[in-house]
Design a protein around this nucleic acid. Structure first.
Lengths: 146, 146
DNA sequence: TCTGAATAAGATATGAATTATCTTTATTAT
DNA sequence: ATAATAAAGATAATTCATATCTTATTCAGA
């Protein structure tokens, strides 16, 4: 019941980018250093992000990555799905035919319900939220959490 | 972003047990057959459930498993945590010290928030819900879902 | 009381996915 | 040309999920 390390890095990397002045070309080296992640792994992750179209990549000297989609429009759900694939929770949450019982299994509707709730939550945050002071507002709202 | 196969099997196995007359001693063999899961794997899963105390185990001929906690009081969250361990979503959702940045990382409060929503949803379903006709009520409420 | 069958418990092995690294190639600015 | 950068592909390491095998326990029946 966890997101992958790769998705976690991707989110942190995109947040780092969003904190830079708009249009800045970011190097993987810097993204990795500022998110405490292995540069070679981050490089792979950004290749995937570039293929998906949410960032642009530029090769060569002074190459790097820029946003292709505004960070306001990149939700956490989007990032996770690009890196990890569709959010399913269990095998039959989306596709009835994957239920391993005849017809629809007992727990099918529970999983479709919980999946909807989770996706809704993941869609309610964008990368831009963490590059502004919204984080601090949340801190106040959350109160003391361990 | 999935529950493990083991948790999925555990839930299905407990639902099967809940459908039997109260107090029935269930064999792993039957639980496995009726949930389309490998008996040897299910055996190990039920060992873990027994250690946690939610089921009793009896060895020897006519041994097997019974509920130790009423199925009404076993939530889906409980089962997942017994099998997979705590629901964390990402490394720092619960423990600030696991944040890989100095102090609290940017996304910390998002994950504590989403985690709370998810746990709430998982706690709103019990094993007993799927052994009665509540499932059908949900089907009506859900309408046509693919 | 002995023996064997049925069962769970425990230990171990397998396999797949994730995570990470390394090397080579392509591209670009200077 | 040269250096800096990402892309791409290959491979290695690690972890985790899954599955199987062996042992211990209990009960029934001779």
């Amino acid at each position: 019941m966890n997101i992958s390390r790769a998705s976690d890095y991707a989110i942190r990397g995109l947040v780092y980018m969003a904190k830079q002045p708009a249009g800045t070309v970011c190097f993987v080296k810097d993204i990795a250093k500022n998110t405490n992640s292995p540069a070679s792994f981050m490089s792979k992750i950004f290749q995937t992000l570039a293929k998906s179209g949410i960032v642009n990549s530029f090769t060569g000297t002074k190459g790097g990555f820029t946003f292709n989609t505004q960070p306001e429009n990149i939700t956490i759900k989007t990032v996770i799905e690009i890196i990890d694939g569709p959010i399913l929770l269990n095998r039959c949450a989306v596709n009835k035919s994957a239920c391993n019982e005849i017809g629809i299994c007992d727990v099918h509707y529970m999983w479709t319900d919980i999946r909807k709730i989770l996706i809704n939550a993941l869609n309610s945050y964008s990368i831009a939220d963490f590059a502004t002071d919204k984080k601090n507002k949340m801190e106040v709202l959350s109160g003391v959490m361990q």
